[in-house]
Design a protein around this nucleic acid. Structure first.
Lengths: 146, 146
DNA sequence: CATCCACCCTGTAGGTCATACAGGATCAAG
DNA sequence: CTTGATCCTGTATGACCTACAGGGTGGATG
């Protein structure tokens, strides 16, 4: 049976799929349990046998996760892509939405970074009783921008 | 009894504390359950009565969360701060660690943004069967930088 | 004084996104 | 045949909350 070998047109065990995709082996089972990955056929003994299609789909899911798409978003993308008509415009729109999300996150983190760096810079690190970092953290609204 | 009023030296209900700190009312109970916020005394009827100290501490926790510290990190900070000796140097170090984390996250998100934007830019949004976004997402290692 | 509604209480379930482990079966190689 | 890797299932854990059901309480109002 196909194991770790590439075996084109082939079949894979869960472990092989995990290695090929870089997806954690337990996560594959998790994705199956939430219906993100189709239940594969089994051997008589109950072992899962994955096809090239499973590999393709899991690769897609994994790639999307790396790009920060949520599982919910990935579900939408898959629905669009598998809806026969290549729903390119909708995929484009979802991608742009996601870019906007990412940009918002970047902006938030930048603000956080600035505040934290300022705090650290004010600290003289000696054992004076009032540390500016600590004082700042105890203030209710120390920085309007957060 | 003190409710929403400022009542210095005072006591607060859970709702009042929630309003003062901006922390969700259920989250306060959650923080108590995980030992992040001390169990307050109760009225005969079992209602929680928070002191100025609780307010101070929850404000601190909330502020740290806004700055992206994890609950675990907040626990460390509180332990340091309450350890009598103002452990300013340690607090400074934890803050710098955290800044580094934040900077890593920013870098990751920037890469994501770039890849996503590139993908979107290549897409002509017509119904041609092969959409560059979709194709890209199906590739196993389309961008070495991710 | 009765009433009313906002608030409080508890316990528990849900949500996201996995990861880990126990206890056992199977498989392939030596 | 034995051994070690891999597979199976079900369940628990982790971070970090949020929400809801089903009930009790408190204080202002009439």
């Amino acid at each position: 049976m196909a194991e770790t070998a590439s075996n084109d047109g082939g079949s894979y065990t869960r472990g092989a799929l995990s290695k090929r995709t870089g997806c954690n082996i337990e996560t594959i089972r998790y994705y199956e349990s939430i219906g993100l990955l189709a239940d594969p056929p089994r051997t008589r003994a109950g072992h899962r046998v994955y096809s090239q299609d499973h590999l393709r789909r899991l690769t897609f899911v994994r790639r999307c996760r790396q790009l920060g798409f949520s599982l919910r978003e990935i579900r939408s993308l898959l629905r669009l892509i598998e809806g026969g008509e290549s729903a390119c415009a909708e995929v484009h729109a979802l991608t742009l939405d996601h870019v906007a999300d990412v940009q918002r996150k970047i902006a938030d983190l930048r603000r956080m970074e600035r505040v934290l760096s300022d705090m650290a810079a004010q600290c003289r690190q000696d054992e004076i009783p009032d540390c500016p970092i600590i004082d700042n953290l105890f203030e209710e609204n120390p920085h309007r921008e957060l």
